[in-house]
Design a protein around this nucleic acid. Structure first.
Lengths: 340, 340
DNA sequence: CTGAAAGCGCTTACAG
DNA sequence: CTGAAAGCGCTTACAG
């Protein structure tokens, strides 16, 4: 790289101190510095194509205007959509985003957090992995601002933006129960993460409220980084039961995409042989031959609010924001058969 | 934020200079510093939970270990998949990724480039927008390493990793011509970007080679940030011609996703009434009732190579790398009708 | 109204 | 073998 032009270069050219140049270029010269000098400095800056070295500035000001975003996997459309919204919102406040994918792995997320911390990010937007509570506590102890997104940790009081997953799952399952379905399967992740537990709890509550006992064989929990084969196996088992399940609830878009790609090639037909409900929208759910009834999370709001809350907390000490957003419940063809 | 512990804190605690601490913590003390002092310093660092301030280091070393990634839109699965691959590859070399979405807009991309440059990124991986050639020339003049991904600018000699888009389009169209199709429509972007021009050229070449003249009414060019309505209108026009088109080629996944979501609700049936071919894979193309024959770009290779080339160029001056990768041609049901 | 000086937290050439 | 000193490129409290 060519050597860069610094304040000093401008100062020398104009014949003033770097201090003056800094003041002028940062518009901190209101009613202080003579108009002539100001002009000269601005001209020189333009002529030399000066570019402020944000790193030097950050070292002095203790602010980088970078926020760290740690998601499960940036290549998943749920997270990449959120990333885009966060990027746009951050940009409004002149912040830039540096990101990392944790793969739902606490070790990886710790490593990422440390790297981003070394880069002196001003704060984090996080979708923490299982077993990463200690990392959050560490951030709190060090007074580093962060906002949880999509997720919630009941053990600590922290900023978060999410939906009520219990209610969302309950709504989905209640919908099919009202249609007359009894045997309802769940494909979810084997995970202690609160939102997955809540989804399971909501699922079970809706069923039991209807005086049906949830069979353990109805619940399939796949490893959080499972391949599609695990999902396929779960579907086979649920539909191969002595009394096969009449509905399958997918607890995330990741699961439903794998599931739909498998079911599309199965002889059984949706919704007549099997009804489908799912968390999260996806192109797959839209273009499946029987579009899937699902819960659509308000990504726009989630991303924007998370960013806003984070930036406010970076600016000043504020009380914790705990935000539960209302998801959309979208009814499609996959639950349109009549069981009554 | 709490005040951070610095080298000075460790130095004071142990009673040595910060220089010594720096040497020890960076393992630059081989056969230099006494074992005892080394131990003491390392212990103190651990005890105080020292974290090196990457920003201070960068200011001194002129290296941030951050690469700037500018794509068209991180929420598009093509770019987010690439982002993930680049993230993983970069991480192997201890680099982190800071990203931005240009929305195919040269002004926005200029702004992004400047911001990332201010943050002193060590180099860029870029999918430049239309009319942003001057930005690339600027980077070259300033000797800032970059690699183009997915795109190529014939006007300059620069590192790039892409596929041969002419050949890819030709292959797709040749496939349907061999099946007996004559009237083939193209939905692409109104864009001077080289890869889109090449796709159009390959499309036309395959048709004309078959002694058919390409009708101007077969080619629909929508604005590069069009809504889905523009794609829908294009489809209506192509299928509503006096002599309707028998095949539609979508020049990107963005176009085909919108297109498929529309066509799925149309009375005409794929592949019998209309055959479909497309660039890029997608869940939509997979789950469309008649899965779509397409060109699959080797994202893994593209991302990894782009990252490797960039990092090598950051490390040292090297000759330009121009890489054309071989895409996969995937034949599916959408072109399975027999026209002969 | 203007600017010299100190300092942010590192690294490293150099002197001892 | 060890470490004081300079300096990366900024900002800003403070003195004049």
């Amino acid at each position: 790289m060519k050597k860069k032009v610094s304040l000093k270069d401008i100062a020398q050219k104009v014949g003033v101190s770097t201090a003056l140049v800094s003041y002028v270029l940062n518009n901190k010269n209101i009613g202080r510095i003579g108009k002539e000098v100001t002009e000269k400095i601005k001209d020189a800056a333009k002529e030399l194509n000066y570019r402020t070295n944000q790193i030097a500035r950050s070292l002095k000001t203790n602010r980088t205007f970078i926020i760290g975003l740690i998601v499960a996997d940036i290549s998943n459309t749920f997270w990449s959509s959120l990333a885009r919204i966060i990027e746009d919102e951050a940009e409004k406040y002149n912040y830039t985003v540096i990101f990392g994918s944790s793969d739902e792995n606490a070790e990886k997320s710790l490593k990422l957090t440390n790297i981003l911390l070394n880069h002196q990010v001003d704060g984090f937007i996080l979708a923490p992995a299982e077993d990463s509570l200690s990392q959050l506590i560490f951030l709190q102890e060090n007074e580093i601002p962060f906002v949880l997104i999509d997720r919630y940790f009941p053990e600590i009081k922290a900023n978060y933006v999410a939906i009520d997953n219990y209610k969302a799952a309950y709504t989905l399952v209640k919908h099919v129960i009202d249609k007359g379905y009894k045997r309802i399967g769940l494909i979810t992740f084997k995970s202690s993460l609160f939102h997955f537990q809540e989804r399971k709890r909501g699922y079970a509550a809706a069923i039991e409220e209807n005086n049906v006992t949830v069979m353990q064989t109805w619940i399939k929990e796949v490893g959080i980084n499972s391949s599609k084969e695990a999902v396929e196996k779960a579907i086979d088992e649920l539909t191969g039961l002595q009394e096969p399940v009449e509905v399958i609830l997918f607890a995330s878009n990741y699961l439903s995409i794998y599931g739909l790609k498998y079911i599309v090639n199965l002889p059984l037909k949706v919704p007549d042989d099997l009804a489908l409900i799912s968390f999260d929208e996806s192109d797959a759910a839209d273009l499946f031959y029987s579009p899937v009834t699902h819960i659509k999370q308000p990504l726009e709001q989630m991303g924007q609010l998370a960013t806003k809350i984070l930036l406010e907390h970076i600016e000043k000490r504020l009380p914790i924001s705990e935000v539960n957003l209302e998801p959309e419940f979208i009814i499609r063809k996959s639950t349109s058969a009549n069981k009554n």
